[in-house]
Simulated assay, not measured.
Amino acid sequence: MEALRITSAVAPPQSLIKAHLSKPIFTTPFTHTTSNLTRFSKSKLTKLNVISPSVSTQTETGNLDHQDEKFDWFSQWYALTPVADLDKRAPRGIKALGLDVVVWWDKNENAWKVFDDRCPHRLAPLSEGRIDQWGRLQCVYHGWCFGGSGDCKLIPQAPSNGPAVHSSTKACVAVYPSTEQHGIVWFWPNTDPKYKDILTKKKPPYVPEIEDPSFRTTICARDIPYGYEVLIENLMDPSHVAYSHAGIMTYSPPPR
């Protein structure tokens, strides 16, 4: 059977490098080696363009069905905060995926709402505001009030006998789709109107064990100022427990 020719993966041929660089970075001649591997039929192979910062090469590889797929980080459900950390009497500001949002309880719709944390008037943070006696989210700066759909219900400075300026679309707050599940407020980080009813088409991940009373469930979410890789390294290091968490967890010291 015909042998499969393998090209060195160290670097592409010098002629290709010279086409992209003013000076070659390798002077050692390249050699080709052979292997006893069987050549696949050409019908099972496709061309794949590999791009690097300095050179472009082409190689043969198996057909990858997923190579053209793209993951949209802002078209997914995310756990935003445990309900236990919220207060129905006051809004709470949270930063998630680089977005500043405000979570508040809409007693008129009996649901948690997630808004863009900016008043459309002067961009004051709505999380610094309050819930008024009618259950509306009120901005702390000029008192503009908003309903659960993001629509402005009241502009105190507007004359009562004048035009209904509060009904302008420019007076509305951007609303993120949200829902409560497993004692957690979830949100869809995209305010595009086409996602308004996304909950009817796609729901957050469901974990049946959390709803099963035979399981003991603890939901904890905290903002920690370091990367996930440091967090995982810490969680996988049991030797620090006796000293960093003294008196919290039982620990038997090794014999001396």
Score class of each variant (00 low, 15 high):
residue 255 P to W: 05
residue 97 L to K: 14
residue 80 L to K: 09
residue 229 E to W: 00
residue 176 Y to D: 05
residue 169 T to P: 03
residue 228 Y to M: 09
residue 217 T to N: 13
residue 77 W to K: 13
residue 21 L to D: 11
residue 255 P to S: 13
residue 224 I to K: 05
residue 96 A to S: 15
residue 242 A to W: 00
residue 4 L to Q: 05
residue 8 S to N: 10
residue 156 P to Y: 04
residue 136 R to I: 01
residue 155 I to P: 01
residue 136 R to C: 01
residue 100 D to R: 14
residue 105 W to G: 02
residue 118 R to N: 07
residue 165 V to Y: 00
residue 236 M to V: 06
residue 41 S to L: 07
residue 9 A to S: 12
residue 31 T to D: 10
residue 95 K to H: 07
residue 194 K to M: 07
residue 106 D to A: 11
residue 170 K to S: 11
residue 84 A to D: 15
residue 188 W to S: 01
residue 152 C to W: 00
residue 216 R to V: 07
residue 39 R to P: 09
residue 89 R to P: 00
residue 41 S to K: 12
residue 200 T to A: 15
residue 12 P to K: 02
residue 23 K to E: 02
residue 2 E to V: 01
residue 150 G to L: 06
residue 77 W to S: 12
residue 183 G to Y: 07
residue 9 A to R: 12
residue 112 W to Q: 00
residue 4 L to A: 06
residue 187 F to Q: 08
residue 35 S to T: 13
residue 124 A to K: 10
residue 48 L to N: 08
residue 54 S to N: 15
residue 208 P to N: 14
residue 110 N to C: 09
residue 59 T to R: 03
residue 247 G to M: 07
residue 240 H to D: 00
residue 194 K to W: 00
residue 144 W to Q: 00
residue 79 A to P: 10
residue 133 Q to S: 15
residue 239 S to L: 01
residue 19 A to P: 01
residue 103 V to A: 11
residue 72 D to C: 10
residue 135 G to R: 02
residue 197 D to S: 13
residue 50 V to L: 08
residue 42 K to P: 02
residue 37 L to V: 03
residue 169 T to F: 04
residue 234 N to W: 05
residue 157 Q to S: 02
residue 150 G to D: 08
residue 63 N to I: 15
residue 160 S to A: 09
residue 139 C to G: 05
residue 132 D to K: 01
residue 152 C to M: 05
residue 132 D to Y: 07
residue 227 G to C: 05
residue 114 V to M: 12
residue 250 T to L: 07
residue 137 L to R: 05
residue 93 G to H: 04
residue 42 K to F: 08
residue 173 V to L: 07
residue 220 C to G: 04
residue 78 Y to E: 11
residue 227 G to Q: 02
residue 165 V to L: 05
residue 224 I to W: 12
residue 67 Q to C: 10
residue 151 D to T: 11
residue 210 I to M: 15
residue 130 R to Q: 05
residue 42 K to I: 08
residue 254 P to C: 03
residue 132 D to G: 05
residue 7 T to L: 12
residue 21 L to K: 14
residue 171 A to K: 00
residue 155 I to H: 03
residue 128 E to M: 10
residue 255 P to R: 05
residue 189 P to F: 11
residue 123 L to T: 12
residue 168 S to G: 06
residue 71 F to Q: 04
residue 253 P to F: 08
residue 56 S to V: 14
residue 196 K to F: 09
residue 129 G to D: 02
residue 183 G to F: 11
residue 111 A to T: 14
residue 53 P to T: 12
residue 9 A to W: 05
residue 25 I to S: 04
residue 62 G to R: 13
residue 167 S to K: 09
residue 93 G to P: 07
residue 221 A to V: 03
residue 117 D to G: 10
residue 252 S to W: 04
residue 105 W to R: 04
residue 235 L to R: 14
residue 74 F to L: 12
residue 187 F to Y: 15
residue 253 P to M: 08
residue 80 L to P: 00
residue 142 H to I: 10
residue 145 C to V: 02
